[in-house]
Nucleic acid binder design. Structure first.
Lengths: 124, 124, 124, 124
DNA sequence: GTGGTCTAGACCACC
DNA sequence: GTGGTCTAGACCACG
């Protein structure tokens, strides 16, 4: 479910965060379902528990999960969070649009490419 | 021309690289025009010459400039490079489109927002 | 009567303690009335009896209840305890007032806000 | 400047966070001034650098400071943050006011105590 | 020198 | 068993 790419320049804990964000947002991991324990996941990925711990702590801070001492970690994604994430996404997109203008891509080229890209994924 | 933001989390050399890329792609710096010397720029920005050196080396590696021993560094931008940048941009955009799908944004919402965003910048 | 919030970061036994304190101080639970047995409450909340046990033990230590072997646990609230709680509360408030000063809130702003806040709750 | 209380039940890194928040909000540490390095502070307090690191990371997340690889950590408090912190403070105060009502403290008693407390600190 | 990531291994509180 | 804190010590990127 989680794959670590050691060639990736980003830190391990960040890769884990991103992967879980994806799984949770997509609904692969259902709300209130239990996540693998820190130790188990660490063993499974053969990395240090502290690294998992750091990833889980950040995911908790961002509202993707909640952890309880002695019980475990659980998915806490909800519609409210979805809205927040959409806002964050739009901000990110804004930066890219600005970049497109620098590269002299016309509005038509850009939207066409976005639509095209969206559909290509659709097929997949 | 170059402004360093010390509050920016990214390393200084990366900020310099990005700024030069922007100036070159936009055509503010004309092809074959000479860039400031490593020492001069370092003094002007009051930072370590090694940092400028690293930025120039990376820009040369990416094809934005060429250096001539004993003479200096020169802009080497051409349309070919623009194409490369566009490809890189599209790849980046692709990731974001995938993210949009995860967040359950419809194709219509997405393209509408992109167009809207493009025009908003237009006014500026 | 007791609700456990699993998303709350605090341990379960602490949530139970706080809830009983509130019920007892407010007078919802009358002095010398009997509390639910450890086992019953554990079953009702579907949690580990050890957790209830720990909560009751702490409440007894703090003087909120007393236990009689073989008979059960009983509320032991009295005005003396109310005074103790008020002292604890004032200490807590003291810290917050200090914090207000650090944030450069004037005495007038602070007291006005407190009064305002008190009345707002009044309506509820 | 920083004192660790090992009898305190709260984790060390939290004590450090709180202390720095205080020093920064009060203006003892001026904006853009450099903080002690992770390693130096760790040595000075005879604790592990990782613990300081964790505290600094959280302070950065909360907007109290910014860190740059290879350069150090710097105070970044500003008026904007002051406003945010005031809002957070008021929320905290709201909870306490509710608690006061449970303890049957009248509005007059409460505001009088707050004012009194504020002035007492004034003298100090 | 600086901050940041990671490992190995320990201990605690909680259930 | 669970999550969370802490230590000791290593390595990397940056300036």
């Amino acid at each position: 479910m989680i794959i670590i790419d050691y060639k990736d320049r980003r830190p391990i804990y960040e890769q884990i965060i991103e992967r879980f964000q994806e799984l949770i947002v997509k609904g692969v991991l259902k709300p209130d379902s239990q996540l693998p324990s820190v130790r188990n996941l660490a063993m499974e990925l053969s990395i240090n528990p502290n690294t998992i711990q750091k990833a889980y702590a950040e995911l908790e801070r961002q509202g993707y999960l909640y952890s309880v001492k002695g019980r475990g970690s659980f998915v806490s994604f909800n519609d409210n969070l979805l809205q927040v994430k959409r806002e964050q996404f739009k901000e990110e997109l804004g930066k890219l649009v600005r970049k497109a203008r620098d590269l002299k891509l016309s509005k038509e080229e850009l939207t066409a490419y976005v639509a095209d890209c969206y559909e290509r994924e659709d097929v997949k």
